[in-house]
Computed example of a mutant assay.
Amino acid sequence: MATRKARATASKTIADETVELPPRARIMKSAHALFYGQGIRGVGVEAVAAAADTNKMTLYRHFSSKDELVAAYLREVAAEIEASWDRIGARHKDDPRGHILAWLREMGRQMERPESRGCPITNAAIELPDASHPGRQVIEEHKRGMRRRFAENAKQAGLKRADMIAEQLLLMLDGAGVSLQTIGHDHGPMSTLLKHAEWLLEMDAAK
């Protein structure tokens, strides 16, 4: 009963915030809030439509299936993350190492908010094991892209093991996001990530 009431309250809040938006935008905003807050598998299209103050018929006019809605949600999330990389990179044009650390610091600020459940892309990967799911394809492309960005910056910084460092940074970032949900914010997994990232970049540069 408490869970049902909480979901109803969340849906009403989302509907109040999206009332001025067109239907597709309302659906996407609702999908972001519900998929991230309650999990992809735990949220049906009925809940998304209700939160968007619309109906299933309208939702299916914009998205052919829940899988397609999930993929659209993940594409928007990935685009936001990648845009933050580019935005921070513009402030560190001559400092590729500083770019990496500044971006990780920004991810830390985002994920250590009280309402955070870690990285939405990583969370979705756990929920979507089927390689044929359109959302899974978005996840894998995004993660490969982030590894490539780390490697390019590491090479520009003159680091000797740029590809290995990129893999380690991605593993640590994913691990920190999961740790937020297993050991909580109080233990500071994102702060720990930044310390380890700094150490990793310094160690390679010193070799």
Rank of each mutant, 00 (worst) to 15 (best):
H92Y: 10
L34V: 03
H133N: 06
I183T: 14
A52W: 00
E202A: 13
F150N: 01
A197W: 01
V43S: 02
L159T: 01
M172R: 12
T122N: 12
N123C: 10
E127W: 02
W199N: 14
Q110K: 14
H196C: 13
I121R: 00
G37W: 04
E141R: 11
Q137H: 12
F63K: 03
R61W: 08
D53K: 08
K29I: 14
G188Y: 09
W103Q: 04
V138I: 09
R109H: 03
I27T: 02
C119P: 01
I27H: 01
R109N: 06
A33Q: 09
L69D: 04
P96V: 01
R161E: 06
T54R: 03
L34N: 00
V19W: 14
R4Q: 14
A124G: 03
Q110Y: 11
G135L: 03
A206F: 09
P189V: 02
D95P: 00
R75G: 07
Y36K: 07
A205Y: 09
G177Y: 01
Y73N: 03
K66R: 06
T122Y: 11
E141T: 09
S116G: 06
E152Q: 07
T54I: 03
G42Y: 08
T3L: 15
W85F: 07
A197I: 01
M190D: 08
A205N: 10
N55C: 05
L169G: 00
D67M: 04
Q156F: 09
R41Q: 14
A206W: 09
G175D: 02
I40K: 04
A79C: 08
M1R: 12
S179H: 13
I126N: 12
A6W: 12
P120V: 01
V77N: 02
S191I: 06
P134L: 04
